[in-house]
């Protein structure tokens, strides 16, 4: 415990899978539990070096987006979660991405343990697919239909009203 007060990092360097470096303010980085854990571990060891955190699963264009999100949310970290301005920003932020980018962002949020971004992305995906047909769902999630036509018809028949 004594060491944690002697050293306090203000910045960390995060490396994307395609080897780009990002200098991140500690408060922003703390939005990700993965980064926060790394920082805490280093502080406990009492190191004063700038730490480098490699993220082998996140490309730089996705990492840019995650950090943009973290930066915005770090600004509002002391507010309650119901801030309307932030909610509006979240919505505008996600609106501009296609499904492929949303998927990558979701996976990055999961990997970097940024619970609120993961939740936000998944809610956004859920909202945007709820009126789609079964065939469209298969396309979006890249799923192969492994039912025979008869099996599919039988399953459909079990809840025929839901397809009306």
């Amino acid at each position: 415990m004594a060491s944690s007060s002697s050293s306090s990092l203000s910045r960390v360097v995060v490396k994307s899978s395609d080897n780009n470096l990002f200098v991140v303010n500690k408060k922003v980085a703390s939005q990700s539990q993965l980064l926060k854990q790394c920082i805490d571990n280093m502080e406990e060891k009492g190191t004063n070096d700038v730490i480098l955190i490699p993220l082998s699963n996140v490309t730089s264009n996705i990492l840019t987006l995650v950090l943009e999100y973290c930066e915005k949310h770090a600004d509002f970290a002391d507010d309650d979660n119901n801030n309307q301005e932030l909610k509006q920003w979240d919505h505008e932020f996600l609106k501009k991405f296609d499904y492929a980018t949303l998927n990558s962002l979701t996976m990055a949020a999961d990997y970097m343990v940024t619970k609120s971004l993961l939740n936000l992305c998944c809610q956004f995906i859920a909202d945007s697919i709820k009126d789609l047909t079964v065939q469209q769902i298969r396309q979006i999630f890249d799923i192969k239909n492994d039912f025979t036509p008869q099996e599919e018809a039988d399953i459909k028949n079990e809840n025929a009203w839901a397809f009306r």
Binding site: I137, R138, N145, D146, F147, E152, E158, N159, A162
Partner: peptide, 9 residues
């Protein structure tokens, strides 16, 4: 979700 039961096994 009832419709999604048709997506895949």
């Amino acid at each position: 979700l009832l419709r999604c039961r048709c997506v895949s096994k």
